[in-house]
Amino acid sequence: MKLQKRGQAGTMQSSDLMVVVEPADELVIEIESTVKKQFEHLIRAKLESVLAKHGATAGRISVSDRGALDYAIEARLEAALQRAGGLS
């Protein structure tokens, strides 16, 4: 799967997150979060598993998280990937 363009999904409200995905030569994940100290490892793990599920091996994935739960992270990332033309 390859990203065609920039894709964005989500909000900056509490318990939500904003995901921006852009084409890039390699896979880069950037995480900002209100709960980074406690949950960065789990947020990253969730992002990686969703990316792997869709076979995304390259792209810049930027996340501004406001304490979203895993299902929200999955949904927002998938929406952003779709908008970036990365999902079939």
Binding site: T34, V35, Q38, F39, G67, A68, L69
Partner: peptide, 13 residues
């Protein structure tokens, strides 16, 4: 009797 009221989760915490 003291009753503590709180949501179970706040912004993932």
């Amino acid at each position: 009797l003291s009753i503590v009221v709180a949501p179970s989760i706040r912004g993932r915490l």
